[in-house]
Simulated assay, not measured.
Amino acid sequence: MDKVIIRQLKIDTVIGVYDWEKVLEQSLYLDLDMEWDISNAAKADDYSQALCYETVSNRLQALITEKPIELIETVAEMTAQCLISEFNVRWVKVCVHKPGAIEKADTVGVEIIRQR
């Protein structure tokens, strides 16, 4: 299985269940593993056959920031469904980190795996 990987994609958005969280932006960090056959792009050295990191990142930025979200679980599921439906990714692992969510941990997070 070939994978395209994005690590620590920073997205600043309104996220959280508490009232104080609903009025400020916080940083989320996404780790993505996306199954993508890179052989055709590599063989032809052809960008048009590759999964574009920038296009994926920009789309996720727009998706996650379009409205306030309460749960990082929702962010993970939205991200996975977007990658599968809009980018035709066959399999994806999404890990969403929310640093500073609890005092005694550097970060908290959720990880999901989805496939077509």
Rank of each mutant, 00 (worst) to 15 (best):
60 L>M: 06
86 E>A: 06
62 A>Y: 09
43 K>E: 12
70 E>K: 15
55 T>G: 06
67 K>S: 13
87 F>C: 07
72 I>Y: 04
77 E>D: 13
51 L>W: 06
62 A>V: 14
54 E>K: 15
69 I>G: 01
59 R>M: 10
62 A>G: 13
51 L>R: 07
58 N>G: 12
60 L>G: 04
54 E>Q: 15
72 I>R: 02
86 E>V: 01
43 K>C: 02
86 E>G: 06
64 I>Y: 05
59 R>T: 13
51 L>F: 01
73 E>P: 06
84 I>Q: 02
77 E>T: 12
75 V>M: 03
40 N>G: 15
77 E>P: 10
78 M>W: 07
59 R>W: 09
84 I>W: 02
80 A>G: 01
62 A>W: 07
69 I>N: 00
40 N>V: 15
55 T>S: 13
60 L>C: 00
43 K>D: 11
83 L>C: 03
64 I>W: 00
54 E>F: 13
49 Q>V: 02
76 A>K: 08
56 V>C: 00
54 E>H: 14
42 A>C: 11
55 T>A: 14
60 L>V: 07
84 I>P: 04
59 R>S: 12
53 Y>Q: 05
53 Y>M: 02
57 S>I: 04
74 T>C: 08
45 D>S: 11
81 Q>L: 12
57 S>D: 05
45 D>L: 04
66 E>D: 14
58 N>P: 07
87 F>M: 02
52 C>N: 14
45 D>F: 07
84 I>C: 04
43 K>R: 14
80 A>W: 06
55 T>E: 13
54 E>M: 14
39 S>K: 14
45 D>Q: 08
53 Y>T: 09
44 A>I: 06
49 Q>C: 07
68 P>S: 11
70 E>C: 11
83 L>S: 01
41 A>R: 04
65 T>A: 08
80 A>K: 07
45 D>P: 03
62 A>I: 12
74 T>W: 00
68 P>N: 11
55 T>R: 14
44 A>K: 12
54 E>G: 14
74 T>V: 12
81 Q>E: 13
88 N>W: 05
70 E>Y: 14
73 E>M: 08
72 I>D: 03
73 E>Y: 01
71 L>W: 05
53 Y>R: 09
85 S>Y: 05
55 T>V: 14
71 L>T: 02
69 I>D: 00
57 S>A: 12
43 K>S: 12
70 E>N: 15
46 D>W: 04
41 A>L: 10
86 E>H: 11
